[in-house]
């Protein structure tokens, strides 16, 4: 038997019929405002094309009107950018709130791991050194055994003692195998206790320390990055009012004209 239908269920319409789909997910900015700007920008682009189609400016009147056109472009840019910032602000504020809420926890976790890693690295290093010492001794012993077995084999060969010879050869092989095993690199990592954690290993990184800047500079003097740095430094001084550019060796001054 079906459950009875109550009066409320008969009257109440379905939710989807009241509001359109997606009504709870509005776009992140005002479409209307943007459409207004798009229209104005399009008009300015058409006008700009008319200017560029001239190829050259020949009269004072055109130069002054083009100056006004640039002022208009700048003014509209400022308007659009101000609107952009205003539309973006609530999202930026929300993003900042999320960051402010989550970042302290992330910082704690990262700092905790960073503080723990050196303890593991120190342990791996200590253990590796002990292991290497042990292996060094084992390798030395194995090599000695192999040497003694070699001598025994030679003696057995001379005495035609086949039984002794076979034993000595076998002993030599076993000793050589032990030596090879002892010479294998020592593992420098720590695995997971549970099986779920990632293995942690130590690694060495190298970096240069500049002892003699002049020598290093001479070595890299033709590198493009060095030329860029020199150009940047010299240009800053050439543009500075309180620097005597004649005192800078090895440069010439180039001038570029642009409208501003």
């Amino acid at each position: 038997m079906n459950a009875p239908i109550t009066p409320d269920e008969k009257i109440k319409p379905k939710q989807a019929e009241l509001a359109g789909l997606g009504h709870n997910n509005p776009p992140p900015f005002s479409q209307e405002k943007l459409a207004g700007f798009v229209e104005r920008v399009t008009e300015f682009m058409k006008a700009n094309k008319a200017w560029l189609d001239l190829k050259q400016i020949e009269t004072d009147d055109h130069a002054e009107k083009a100056t006004d056109m640039i002022a208009g472009l700048r003014g509209l840019y400022k308007e659009v950018d101000t609107a952009r910032k205003a539309e973006k602000k609530p999202h930026d504020d929300a993003g900042k709130a999320v960051q402010a809420a989550y970042t302290p926890q992330l910082d704690k976790l990262k700092t905790a791991a960073d503080k723990l890693k050196p303890l593991i690295a120190s342990y791996i290093d200590k253990k590796a050194k002990a292991e290497e010492e042990k292996k060094r001794k084992e390798e030395a012993e194995a090599r000695e055994k192999a040497r003694l077995a070699e001598e025994a084999a030679k003696k057995a060969e001379e005495e035609n003692d086949v039984g002794a010879l076979v034993e000595a050869e076998a002993a030599k092989k076993a000793a050589e195998k032990e030596a090879k095993k002892a010479s294998a690199p020592v593992k420098k990592s720590v695995g997971s206790a549970t099986g779920a954690g990632r293995t942690i290993s130590t690694r060495k990184s190298r970096h240069a320390v500049v002892e003699n800047p002049l020598q290093v500079f001479m070595y890299y003097r033709d590198h493009p990055d060095v030329i860029d740095v020199l150009t940047r430094l010299a240009t800053a001084d050439v543009r500075a009012k309180d620097v005597d550019e004649t005192k800078i060796p090895g440069i010439s001054i180039a001038e570029k004209v642009s409208a501003a």
Partner: peptide, 28 residues
């Protein structure tokens, strides 16, 4: 030329209203 510009540029029609060059572009 200024007389001609005042005739042809709509933004120049009202002497007592500051011009907002960002509203309408100035064409050649």
């Amino acid at each position: 030329q200024l007389f001609e510009n005042r005739r042809s540029i709509p933004a120049m029609k009202d002497d007592y209203t500051p011009i907002n060059l960002a509203l309408t572009p100035i064409t050649p």
